[in-house]
Amino acid sequence: MKLSILDLVPVRTGQTTADSFAASKQIIDTADKLGFTRYWVAEHHNMTSIASTMPGPELMHLGQGTQQIRLGSGGVMLPNHAPLAVAELFALLSAVFGDRIDLGIGRAPGTDPITSAAMRGHLGEGRMVDREGRAIDPVEQFPRHVIDTLSLMQPEGMRVPLHGGREHVLKATPAAAPGTQPLPWLLGSSGYSARLAAELGMPYVFANHFASGATTGMKIYRDNFTPGAYGDEPQTFVTANLVVAPTEEEAQLRSEPFMLQMARMRTGGPMEKLHLAGDDVRSVMTDQERMVGEELSNNWIIGDPKSAAAQLEELAERFDVDEIMIQPIAGAMEGEDVREDPGRIQTIELLAAEFLGGVNV
């Protein structure tokens, strides 16, 4: 089974943004050497515990020195951006890294409504409008913007009709070399994205790490897939939150900071940098937060290497996939270097030993 990594570049107590990116650089370098298939960074805004806001520039930094792992976005939240800006940025990444670039596209804002409005230039009285002055909702324009983004990355670009029957050819520059255009993936957590990906013949990923309904989404995608430019058969995998440690007890301990964070997000609690595993998180976690966190974690994989491997294999069999993208959510402990993330490194190294031959870093 192929393994890939989703990284939100988490920020914990005592860390600066620079520290968190230094730790994530170790994550991608380790994953590259161990034979992981992809490394994707997310797009989230105005969140104290997440440093990953702009996947394109982050990949340009994090990807330096890697040799084989695919670099991608999980994903670019397209309603926040102009299609040409996305196409040019990922064409540039392909020009630098060749045929190792994935463009994962999502429809969600990746943030709260006010921040989302700010991302789209809607603060104060600013609004996007059409030629008649009617307000435009970028979410409603999502299918059109997906198609435009894909067209702009092709060597021939897209033709924009002008008055008088003329056309203007528009394409991403600098262009990627022939045959190295980014591979697009549509990300989703509902039937909407599954249907759109199937209609456009795009690869599709279900966000199983935070949403239920993957069985339905995958069936919709596979049953309605239309062969096209990206292949004759559906391409798909699922995501999963995961903590692996030498013992079940340590894995559970390291899962608690993320458990608290997700419980607070669900209940409207204070959003802070991730607490440290152990006394730091247990001193602030309420009974309600623990109850909510434990309920949410029922869909996560937390355990020792053999247990985690068995759960991953069951997940792959359930959804009929040969690849799973893990989000390593292992928290840090007191005294661990702020520019490193030993718990997350341990998680991917122990998984590699089970699935990828245990290559030494």
Score class of each variant (00 low, 15 high):
268 G>W: 14
293 G>Q: 01
155 P>E: 04
10 P>V: 05
59 L>E: 03
351 L>W: 12
109 P>C: 03
61 H>N: 13
359 V>Y: 09
274 L>S: 05
228 G>K: 07
106 G>P: 10
300 W>D: 06
323 E>D: 13
45 H>A: 00
51 A>S: 12
226 T>S: 11
25 K>T: 08
311 Q>I: 07
126 G>Q: 10
199 E>Q: 15
87 A>L: 01
262 M>S: 03
171 K>S: 14
206 F>M: 07
240 A>P: 02
13 T>N: 14
330 A>N: 05
1 M>A: 12
326 I>Y: 03
317 E>L: 13
218 M>L: 15
116 S>W: 11
209 H>Y: 11
185 W>I: 04
356 L>E: 02
274 L>C: 01
120 R>V: 04
334 E>Y: 01
261 Q>A: 11
358 G>C: 12
114 I>Y: 13
137 D>T: 04
146 V>W: 07
153 M>Y: 08
68 Q>A: 15
121 G>M: 07
13 T>M: 13
284 V>A: 06
258 F>V: 00
163 H>L: 13
206 F>D: 10
268 G>E: 07
102 D>G: 04
219 K>A: 11
132 E>V: 07
193 S>E: 14
166 R>A: 14
168 H>K: 14
276 L>T: 04
100 R>P: 03
22 A>G: 00
287 D>M: 09
288 Q>P: 00
124 G>P: 10
20 S>E: 03
209 H>Q: 09
74 G>H: 02
211 A>Q: 10
122 H>D: 10
27 I>S: 09
138 P>W: 01
330 A>L: 06
305 P>N: 06
356 L>I: 11
236 T>H: 15
338 V>Q: 09
104 G>H: 02
266 R>N: 15
92 L>Q: 06
272 E>H: 14
79 P>V: 02
77 M>G: 06
227 P>S: 14
297 S>Q: 06
335 G>F: 06
217 G>E: 07
6 L>A: 09
157 G>F: 07
46 N>A: 15
160 V>L: 12
226 T>Q: 15
189 S>V: 11
45 H>W: 09
143 P>F: 05
286 T>L: 05
98 G>H: 08
48 T>G: 04
266 R>C: 06
156 E>S: 10
251 A>Y: 11
349 E>H: 13
161 P>I: 08
85 A>D: 07
166 R>D: 14
311 Q>S: 13
262 M>E: 08
253 L>R: 10
293 G>R: 05
124 G>W: 15
339 R>N: 13
244 V>E: 00
134 R>N: 13
63 G>Q: 07
347 T>P: 05
173 T>F: 12
256 E>A: 02
322 D>R: 12
69 I>Q: 04
292 V>R: 03
324 I>D: 06
168 H>E: 14
7 D>H: 07
10 P>L: 06
73 S>C: 02
187 L>M: 07
177 A>R: 06
15 Q>Y: 06
146 V>L: 10
231 G>M: 08
298 N>I: 12
91 A>F: 09
1 M>Y: 10
140 E>T: 13
84 L>E: 01
222 R>H: 10
